[in-house]
Computed example of a mutant assay.
Amino acid sequence: MTSHVAGFEITAARWERGDFTDHLSVVVFPAGAIHAHARDGFARLQEEQGRLLGKRRLRRQPSRR
């Protein structure tokens, strides 16, 4: 992602010289890698949440009535 943003610096420098032939970063945005990272991270968070909620439920038993 950093290289994609840095690639825009090259594009912006060209724009400053009046060269508007490129409108995108010279480095392709890593959408697939970011999507996979977000998906995997979210899955880990859900697992952790389930584990924490499971422990919490175990501590609450037996219920008071």
Rank of each mutant, 00 (worst) to 15 (best):
T2D: 15
T2H: 08
S3D: 13
H4I: 00
H4R: 07
V5Q: 11
V5F: 12
A6Y: 10
G7E: 04
F8N: 09
F8V: 02
E9N: 14
E9W: 04
E9V: 03
E9L: 08
I10V: 13
I10D: 12
I10L: 06
T11Y: 01
T11W: 07
T11V: 08
A12E: 10
A13G: 13
A13T: 07
A13W: 05
R14L: 06
R14T: 04
R14F: 02
W15M: 02
W15T: 03
W15S: 01
W15I: 06
W15Q: 01
E16F: 11
E16R: 12
E16P: 02
E16T: 12
E16K: 11
G18K: 00
D19R: 02
D19W: 02
F20D: 07
F20W: 14
T21S: 09
T21M: 04
T21L: 04
L24G: 07
L24S: 11
L24W: 15
S25C: 01
S25R: 12
S25L: 03
S25D: 04
V26I: 10
V27R: 11
V27W: 06
V27Q: 14
V28M: 14
F29W: 10
P30L: 01
G32P: 05
A33Y: 09
A33S: 12
A33M: 15
A33T: 13
I34T: 04
I34W: 09
H35P: 01
H35V: 15
A36I: 06
A36G: 03
H37L: 08
H37Q: 12
H37M: 11
H37E: 11
A38I: 12
A38S: 08
R39N: 06
R39Q: 09
D40W: 02
D40I: 02
D40E: 13
G41S: 12
G41W: 06
G41K: 05
F42W: 10
A43W: 00
A43V: 02
A43K: 03
R44A: 14
L45T: 01
L45I: 03
Q46E: 14
Q46N: 05
E47D: 08
E47Q: 09
E47K: 06
E47M: 02
E48R: 15
Q49H: 15
Q49Y: 15
G50D: 02
G50T: 02
R51H: 10
R51F: 12
R51A: 04
L53I: 15
L53Q: 12
G54F: 07
G54P: 01
K55T: 03
R56W: 10
R56E: 13
R56L: 15
R56P: 00
R57M: 14
R57W: 12
L58Q: 14
L58E: 15
L58D: 11
L58I: 12
R59H: 04
R60Q: 13
R60I: 04
R60N: 05
R60T: 05
R60A: 05
R60G: 00
Q61L: 14
P62G: 01
S63H: 09
S63C: 07
S63T: 07
R64N: 06
R64C: 05
R64V: 15
R64P: 07
R65Y: 11
R65D: 07
